[in-house]
Amino acid sequence: MSLAGTTGVYARSYERLDRAIKIGFASGHVISVSFPRTIPEDVDTDHELLDRISEYLEGSEETFADVELGLTLPTDRRAVLEAVESVPYGESASVSRITRMAGRDDNDPEDLEFVKDALRDNPTPLFVPDHRVEGGPYATPSDVRETFRDVEELR
């Protein structure tokens, strides 16, 4: 999906979530995702990516793999989020597995805590699908996470 040139903030309310999804863009890259209860007044509600999220919430198998992210993170944190991104639609992975996928030792408490911190600070939940990680923590609020898990039939 070409988002070339897209800059700004877009949001839309989704009945299934009982809240909105707000997406920040810079130079065609998604840089932030949040889940406010209401749509802020200063955002645009019309964007193709918001349409795709609607389809996802209605059960369309959507991976968002083509959405370019603008993650301004240290390389080691980026490795954690890339590991999360690689978990396929409809599947889940434990924090331990994500730790190993990120090249860290899941038997090392410091490595596990590092991965948990990266998950907690995920700036683009849904596109870096932390809802697919078992035993978080998560950047995605619990009610939103449960809806995403229901959509993907993760149990």
Rank of each mutant, 00 (worst) to 15 (best):
T140R: 07
V84I: 15
D44G: 00
G136Q: 14
M101F: 12
A83K: 10
K22H: 07
D130R: 02
L73D: 02
F25L: 07
A139C: 07
A118R: 12
E110T: 13
R100W: 09
S27N: 15
L49R: 07
T140F: 07
P137Q: 09
Y138R: 14
V87G: 03
G103H: 06
V95A: 03
S13E: 12
S32M: 05
T75K: 14
H131S: 03
A139K: 12
T72P: 00
D66M: 06
V33M: 02
V84S: 04
R12Y: 05
E110D: 15
H47W: 09
K116T: 05
S2G: 10
G136S: 13
Y10T: 03
T147R: 12
G135L: 08
P74L: 06
E68M: 11
F148G: 01
E15Q: 14
S86M: 08
R78Y: 13
D130K: 09
R37G: 04
S54Q: 13
R78H: 11
V144T: 12
P141S: 05
L112K: 14
D51H: 11
A4D: 13
D105W: 06
T75V: 15
S96K: 14
E134S: 11
Y14E: 04
G70Y: 07
R37S: 13
V43D: 02
P88A: 06
D66Q: 12
E134V: 15
I98A: 01
Y138A: 10
G70L: 09
S94F: 06
D111W: 12
S142T: 15
L112G: 00
V33D: 02
L126K: 09
L69F: 07
